[in-house]
C-alpha cells in the first residue's frame, strides 16, 4: 500500500544556512546537507528545499545546492523558492532533484507549469499555493480561501480551490497547500482547506503550515485527506523526531514507511 509521506522542509539561504535551526555548539547544525542527511537517516520520505536567496547568483546557488544534495542524499527531493522560468526548472531537475515547486510565477505565467510538465513529466512539477481564509461573500456560513503570492504580501483575488484545479489542468502533478493563517502557529494544519482541495483534484496533496506535533499530522492525513505532511520547525528544533511521528501514525493505522536497518558496508 502506498505510504503517506512525512516531509521536512528546509528554508535555505545562500545555499549554506537553514533558517530556523537552533544554534548550538555544532557548527554544521545549519548546513542544509548535514540536516538533510540527518532527516534521511531518521526516515524522512522526501525533502523540500526552499531557496530564499535573493541575489543575481540565485540560479548558480540553487544548482550547487541541488548537486550537493543529490550526491549525499538518496531520497526524492523538491526544490522551490523563486522558480520563475523553464530554465530554473531545468536547472533543478537536471541537477538531480525529483521536483520543482512553483508558486508566484504560476499566477503571472501559468504556461510555465505546462512547459515544465511537457518537458519533465507532471510528476516533476509541483504547484505550490499560499492560501488565506476569507469569509465567503455568497454564503455567509462558509469560508473560502484567497491565493496570496510573494510570500503572502500580495493578494491575488483568486479562489484557492479554483486555482488548485487550474494548476492540475495546466499539468501540475502534485499540490502543496500552505495555509498562511496556520503557518507558524503550531496549532495544526488547515484541515478543511486540505480536504476540500483533495476532494476536487486527483493529484496528491501536501499539507503545509501549522504543524505542532504528530496529532496534527494524523489529522491532516486522515480527516484532511492529504497524501503528505510537511513540517519545518518541529523537526529543526528536535521537538519531535520523524521516527516518533511515524510511530504515532502507524499506531493509528496510517500507512507509513517504517525505518529499517540495512547493512551497506
Amino acid at each position: 500500500m502506498l505510504a503517506r509521506r512525512i516531509i521536512p522542509c528546509l528554508d535555505v539561504k545562500n545555499g549554506r544556512n537553514v533558517r530556523g535551526v537552533k544554534f548550538s555548539a555544532d557548527k554544521d547544525a545549519g548546513d542544509p546537507i548535514e540536516l538533510a542527511k540527518r532527516y534521511d537517516a531518521e526516515g524522512a520520505d522526501e525533502l523540500v528545499f526552499y531557496d530564499i536567496t535573493a541575489s543575481a547568483e540565485k540560479r548558480d546557488i540553487v544548482a550547487e545546492l541541488v548537486r550537493r544534495v543529490s550526491e549525499e542524499v538518496f531520497i526524492p527531493f523538491t526544490v522551490g523558492g523563486g522558480v520563475r522560468t523553464y530554465y530554473d526548472i531545468r536547472t533543478i531537475i537536471e541537477g538531480g532533484a525529483e521536483k520543482a515547486s512553483i508558486n508566484s510565477a504560476a499566477i503571472h505565467t501559468p504556461e510555465i507549469i505546462t512547459q515544465g510538465a511537457e518537458s519533465f513529466g507532471s510528476q516533476a512539477i509541483v504547484g505550490s499555493i499560499d492560501a488565506i481564509r476569507r469569509s465567503n461573500p455568497d454564503q455567509i456560513e462558509d469560508v473560502c480561501w484567497e491565493v496570496v503570492i510573494n510570500g503572502g504580501r500580495t493578494y491575488t483575488g483568486r479562489d484557492a480551490l479554483e486555482w488548485a484545479e487550474e494548476l492540475v489542468d495546466l499539468g501540475a502533478g502534485e499540490l502543496v497547500l500552505n495555509s498562511i493563517d496556520a503557518d507558524g502557529t503550531k496549532d495544526g494544519y488547515d484541515i478543511e482547506l486540505n480536504r476540500m482541495v483533495a476532494e476536487r483534484v486527483d493529484v496528491p496533496i501536501v499539507a503545509s503550515g501549522g504543524a505542532g506535533g504528530p496529532e496534527d499530522m494524523y489529522a491532516v492525513l486522515s480527516e484532511g485527506k492529504a497524501s503528505a505532511a510537511l513540517a519545518a520547525s518541529i523537526f529543526h528544533y528536535s521537538q519531535y523526531s520523524i521516527v516518533e511521528v511515524k510511530t504515532y501514525l502507524a499506531e493509528r493505522g496510517v500507512p507509513v514507511r517504517p525505518k529499517i536497518e540495512i547493512d551497506l558496508t
Binding site: R5, D45, Q123, D202, P204, S227
Partner: peptide
C-alpha cells in the same frame, strides 16, 4: 491515481543475490 508516485512495499517472491540483505 495514476501515476503511482511515492513509497510502496515490495513482497519478495524468491531469493536472489540482487536482494541479499534486503
Amino acid at each position: 491515481r495514476v501515476p503511482q508516485i511515492g513509497w510502496n512495499e515490495v513482497r519478495i517472491q524468491r531469493e536472489t543475490a540482487l536482494l541479499d540483505g534486503v
